[in-house]
Design a protein around this nucleic acid. Structure first.
Lengths: 346, 346
DNA sequence: CTGAAAGCGCTTACAG
DNA sequence: CTGAAAGCGCTTACAG
């Protein structure tokens, strides 16, 4: 023991940080009992529990989560890794998860990969250093190392957004392929024959590509022409949607419908059509994906596919919690489905 | 020492978790040296550094952040506390902060208060248990205990969103009062005389109330009538904006302009006016606040006040980092200002 | 530039 | 139901 450890607080002044020990001393019990009152109150007699509670309040004790996490090798933290924070879609999932996890005393640790799987791997690796209780991660596509790392981790992991078989552990999402197919069916049923798909950054936004593939299957089934998707390099935005509409109409006069990869683009297209005096859906039908409320207020109302994003976050968090607490968590995979909301735009 | 500690790994099998010690053994150095290579590489000779780096890579060592945080009493985590995650405004601040902090190896810990200051206090208290390196918190209004707690904490704190004097520590934001006044001046200059303010949950969303107060001051200065604000209990949404517009026109036929507390409401109002055939701005002028890009695509384009939300997050994070690293962080308070974007809607 | 010792504030796994 | 001992995996503050 060093002669005068700098860390040793002078006995006469009140300690700068209140620890379990201080609470224990004041309550006249052992530190362990205090720990139990905090973590498993039912395991302590009412008498002691009251004494300890009094001491905690009197001293304003705040448990050191870091020490607890180190000793128990787990923390009440759950990382959520998403491709991007600028996309409303991921935010709603985060929101849903936050509601459930916060209520249960868990904190979300935020990570975004910028749609880069290598970055995702590095991030997951770092975040594991926090001994999280579980993890929520967007998508079913990861590097092999990320998959291996999370598989051998032996803590609950939920992959969210798209639905698929063989997740790392659990999965909550919907089939973007089927969603694309459904929208195709809708457009064909309404009589459109020359249908294009317009998206953004589809090399990395592979879920948008899946929606296109679904559309493609549908068009082939109906022996209709299938054009390759237009994929812009910029990020999705309403403004880009308007520009893309104009360019598409210019390049291919025969188009009678456009399925945009998301509502932002589609809403921008409708607004632009309004300004340019292009009749929707008479000259060109416009459809989106996501089911933003705003779409329903457009003139004409946007036809879109509604996905329950907040529910995805809630279900994911609920299943994660159940597993963390050792309870029944239900099926490993959940297809939350989607619904097509038909409006006047198609 | 217990006879057979359950935690002791059998010597023959590879350890389930790689620690500093394993790396040190493999590299033939002491654990401290490994720690130095990770945290202060310049303090280690190149020879040892290479050996250690090799060992880290070979073993796939991931530093246990929790242990590091406990030993050093600080972690590379920064909580960001906002009123709500459903509001785009806070998300953009989070995004800005995330970009800067992630790049520097810090993780954001997410907290939302649901606009409840008691909840904010409890949350801040809990999050302090993570020994964060600093904290970002929305708003300048907190409970006295929250303020006291953060003041005595002696780590950097940045309050964001609104600008004001006497922050807890640092502050980055804009004057919502001035913004309201500016919009008032704009409306008056364009000839409007009967101006109303419509917001949502203004008891808790006090920044919206500040914008109203700014408008009020302006109207008084011009000897114009000032109506009390309409404040709806529901959350802001485009749909509500449309409904609010109709109700306001119905209740007060003399209105010639409405300043909505945010663009969501204002955009909804413009879309509703379109559907109802109400001429904007001829019958009623409409203005918003936030500067969403979408507003510029409306017909007519929405007059609004642009606030640099992402920049607020970036500046806040940058100043926080500077202080964490013991560098110059510049002025304690930063007024990021705002600009009025006049469109055809007024 | 490098290392041996002690400790951060909790919880685990016993034992009673 | 309660507690004494040990340890979680790092870093701090010395000393050399």
């Amino acid at each position: 023991m060093p002669k005068t450890p700098a860390r040793m607080a002078a006995k006469s002044v009140p300690p700068s940080t209140i620890t379990l020990k201080h609470v224990a001393e004041r309550a006249g019990v052992s530190p362990i009992t205090v720990s139990r009152v905090i973590n498993t109150p039912d395991a302590v007699s009412e008498t002691l529990r009251d004494k300890v509670t009094e001491a905690i309040d009197a001293l304003g004790y705040v448990p050191n989560r870091v020490a607890g996490a180190l000793a128990s090798a787990k923390s009440r933290v759950v990382p959520i890794i998403v491709p991007s924070l600028s996309n409303i879609v991921f935010l709603e999932v985060i929101q849903g998860a936050q509601d459930v996890l916060n209520a249960a005393g868990y904190q979300l640790l935020l990570g975004d990969t910028q749609f880069d799987l290598e970055r995702e791997q590095a991030l997951a690796n770092t975040l594991l250093g926090w001994s999280p209780a579980g993890m929520i991660i967007a998508g079913l596509r990861h590097t092999d190392r990320t998959r291996a790392m999370l598989k051998t981790w032996h803590r609950p992991v939920v992959e969210v957004m798209e639905y698929g078989t063989k997740p790392i552990d659990m999965n909550v999402g919907l089939s973007h392929y089927k969603a694309g197919d459904s929208m195709g069916e809708h457009l064909v049923a309404r009589g459109y024959r020359n249908i294009a798909f317009i998206g953004c950054r589809m090399k990395v936004d592979y879920r948008a590509m899946q929606r296109f593939k679904g559309l493609e299957r549908c068009l082939k089934r109906h022996d209709l022409p299938c054009r390759p998707p237009f994929s812009h390099d910029e990020m999705s935005s309403a403004e880009l949607g308007g520009d893309a509409l104009m360019r598409a109409l210019d390049l291919d006069k025969s188009l009678d419908a456009i399925f945009f990869a998301n509502d932002d683009l589609a809403i921008g297209a409708i607004l632009r059509a309004q300004r340019e005096g292009i009749a929707v859906p008479k000259r060109i039908a416009i459809a989106g994906f996501n089911g933003l409320n705003l779409g329903a207020l457009m003139q004409p109302a946007l036809t879109t596919i509604v996905s329950p994003r907040q529910r995805i976050g809630q279900i994911a968090a609920t299943k994660l919690l159940a597993r963390i607490l050792g309870q029944q968590s239900g099926a490993a995979t959940v297809d939350v489905g989607f619904s097509l909301r038909a409006g006047g735009s198609t």
